[in-house]
């Protein structure tokens, strides 16, 4: 259970790059580059997982769920209604969340900032893939649960929020694929 966060990250990274390798079988440059990077990634995980974790307890903030969903829906809304591109929409919503800790000392501001940006990544999913707001709501909810689970892990690592958003979107896509 203690290694669960590392395991979640490992699985989604491996799925992502594994799929890319599978799709690149015909292109030698791509295949070579991806295999080399995968080897380095596997080396990283063997070292990282064997490392001892600090025993700091991180409080669970259920408000995170609200902020991730708000970020996801707001980004999707900007894309869907104002026809802004996904990058600009996520940037605007991310910046709005990012300035909150600079404007107020309220304890929720520092929780809201990364949570809103994580939700914004979920909301970048275009309407053609997401279909509707319910998909974004469910994917944001899944991402928020994973964010809470990983709250003390991979702190300061690049791409943490994006991986969490990807996990949320993948899980809901898989669910809708099997159920609908």
């Amino acid at each position: 259970m203690r290694k669960l966060p590392q395991f979640i990250f490992f699985v989604f990274h491996l799925l992502f790059i594994g799929f890319a390798i599978f799709e690149s079988q015909q292109q030698l440059f791509q295949l070579t580059a991806l295999i080399l990077i995968t080897s380095l990634l596997l080396y990283f995980y063997t070292k990282h997982i064997s490392k001892k974790k600090d025993s700091t307890n991180h409080e669970i903030h259920l408000e995170t769920i609200f902020f991730v969903i708000a970020g996801g829906l707001a980004t999707f809304l900007l894309q869907d209604q104002l026809q802004l591109n996904a990058v600009l929409s996520a940037g605007i919503i991310g910046l709005t969340g990012g300035v909150l800790p600079k404007l107020t000392d309220h304890r929720l501001a520092s929780i809201a900032s990364p949570a809103i940006y994580c939700g914004a990544f979920v909301g970048m999913t275009p309407a053609i893939v997401a279909g509707n707001y319910i998909f974004i709501l469910l994917a944001s909810f899944s991402a928020a649960c994973i964010l809470i689970l990983l709250r003390g892990d991979f702190k300061g690592y690049a791409g943490k929020l994006g991986t969490i958003a990807f996990a949320g979107v993948s899980l809901v896509s898989l669910l809708t694929y099997f159920l609908l």
């Binding site: 990250f9 989604f12 990274h13 992502f16 790059i17 990077i37 995968t38 380095l40 990634l41 596997l42 080396y43 990283f44 995980y45 070292k47 990282h48 990544f121 979920v122 909301g123 970048m124 999913t125 275009p126 053609i128 893939v129 997401a130 994917a139 991402a143 690592y157 690049a158 791409g159 943490k160 929020l161 994006g162 991986t163 969490i164 958003a165 990807f166 996990a167 949320g168 979107v169 993948s170 896509s173």
Partner: peptide, 20 residues
């Protein structure tokens, strides 16, 4: 079109660099 795919790519790049 998959939300979070850029972040996952960045995370893989970063972790691989740490491995390197």
């Amino acid at each position: 079109g998959f939300g979070g795919s850029l972040g996952t790519t960045a995370a893989i790049a970063f972790c691989s660099s740490l491995g390197f």
